[in-house]
């Protein structure tokens, strides 16, 4: 394998890794605040891309992206309000089933709305052939866009969670929901917010990578799986870990093509997931200490 090829794989890995990372972050936000694993997370990414593509027919690109993010955010909130909020004392299993159901619902709705066709947004800058030369590899500017977006999301979330009151309240909700309620926090509203937030950033990721990866009504499921893997790999609750894990998975996947048939790409993710759960459930970067405190 030449350096150039390796770099090419790396870049591809980073691109996909971005989405995985963002989906992972989305998982984390909802998991942290509510303890729910949201299997519909991938659908939010899909909806972002698909909606943006449709909106782009009417609106210029920035507005289309903005509109898609806004609409998907609303969908996220609606999902929580409709399916999650009124559930009393849900068990983990029940929640998983509910979110799987939601993901199926959203997928079917997408199928009806957009059909089986593939959509995408145009490249933000340049087009499909524009490329930058980086160390022998040809890197599309869109990749830089997605990396930048991912970076911006991470920073913004960090600021949100640690510098705003609402962010602090969400962290409190995540640390101990009952205690949060006892402090007078509107925990139910914070849960809705967490869904909305996850949906929004998922949609943003979906928009940013859709020029490269294309969007289809059914990309949600495998995205969810990989995002889940990433979240676990990075340590549930650890945003930075999710990002690192996302890139790691993306890169591994990309390089796996050299070894395995392309169809087995998804299998890799599952295999990694199983491996982690057996060996080190707190994840590569999961802070054991933090996890212990969080559990106490």
């Amino acid at each position: 394998m030449t350096t150039a090829l390796a770099l090419q794989y790396l870049v591809a890995g980073l691109t996909y890794g971005t989405i995985y990372a963002v989906v992972g972050i989305g998982f984390n936000i909802i998991y942290n605040t509510t303890g729910i694993i949201n299997f519909a997370q991938g659908e939010f990414v899909m909806l972002g891309g698909m909606t943006a593509a449709s909106l782009h027919r009417l609106l210029p690109l920035p507005l289309a992206v903005l509109g898609a993010v806004a609409l998907t955010t609303l969908v996220g909130a609606a999902v929580e309000l409709t399916f999650i909020r009124w559930l009393r004392r849900p068990s983990v299993l029940r929640m998983i089933i509910v979110t799987i159901g939601v993901s199926i619902l959203l997928r079917e709705a997408a199928l009806h709305l957009w059909g089986e066709g593939v959509r995408s947004l145009p490249y933000f800058t340049g087009d499909e052939v524009t490329a930058l030369e980086l160390g022998g590899a040809r890197v599309s500017p869109q990749v830089l866009w997605s990396l930048a977006t991912c970076g911006a999301v991470v920073v913004a979330l960090q600021l949100f969670f640690h510098r705003t009151r609402t962010g602090r309240e969400m962290r409190a909700c995540a640390a101990n929901r009952e205690a949060a309620a006892l402090c007078g926090l509107a925990t139910r509203d914070l849960v809705t917010l967490s869904f909305a937030l996850s949906a929004g950033i998922g949609a943003l990721a979906g928009c940013v990578v859709s020029p490269i990866t294309y969007t289809r009504y059914d990309i949600g499921a495998s995205l969810a799986l990989k995002g889940f893997t990433v979240a676990i790999l990075g340590g549930l609750g650890n945003a930075g870990g999710a990002v690192a894990a996302g890139f790691l998975l993306g890169t591994l996947e990309a390089f796996s093509i050299a070894v395995l048939p392309a169809a087995y790409k998804d299998v890799l993710a599952i295999a990694i997931l199983l491996l982690i759960l057996f060996l080190r459930p707190s994840g590569l970067f999961g802070d054991r200490e933090l996890a212990r405190l969080g559990a106490s």
Binding site: R168, R171, A172, A175, N176, E178, A179, A180, A181, L182, C183, G184, L185, A186, T187, R188, L290, L293, G294, S296
Partner: peptide, 24 residues
Amino acid sequence: LATERVVALGCSLVPEGRQVFATM
């Protein structure tokens, strides 16, 4: 009433087992 409303009305509970926000 929801807990947050009760707290807003002026009744606070220091729960069993302290329940501090350990990670904060």
